[in-house]
């Protein structure tokens, strides 16, 4: 079956969507990510969508679901690299993805994730 590769990097999961995301593929990605977050106790998920030229309501909803599921499993989600035209179209469509963190590129996205996890570590240190 066709699926999008998910890379594991320490405590984070990395996904770069390079192909057209059709409905079934998006659902498979959602399942794969949820399974992997749970199996590896990942603390963050980074999804690079810079290659996507459209995000319609189905894909948008799937991305929001991924973020919500990860949050329940105690992982932060960052969406990076959305193109301007895609962003304008999503807003016009009524999809603003509240609750999903965003960043301009993979580098900034990783910084965001590290900050999110790092802050918690500080708290733990304080507690110990």
């Amino acid at each position: 079956m066709e699926r999008i590769p998910v890379l594991k990097l320490d405590q984070f999961l990395l996904v770069t969507i390079q192909v057209e995301l059709h409905d079934q593929l998006a659902l498979t990605l959602q399942d794969d990510l949820t399974t992997m977050v749970s199996r590896h106790s990942s603390r963050g998920v980074l999804i690079d969508i810079s290659a996507l030229d459209i995000v319609d309501s189905f894909i948008g909803r799937t991305l929001a679901h991924i973020a919500a599921l990860s949050r329940i499993l105690d992982a932060a989600t960052v969406l990076v690299g959305m193109r301007p035209a895609v962003a304008i179209t999503m807003v016009e469509l009524g999809l603003t993805l509240p609750g999903v963190s965003t960043a301009l590129n993979v580098e900034r996205g990783m910084t965001l994730l590290r900050e999110a996890v790092g802050n918690e570590h500080d708290d733990e240190d304080d507690a110990e």
Partner: peptide, 12 residues
């Protein structure tokens, strides 16, 4: 507001 929402989606 829409412009600001779009910028946020892009990470700005």
């Amino acid at each position: 507001i829409k412009t600001i929402a779009a910028a946020r989606l892009m990470g700005a």
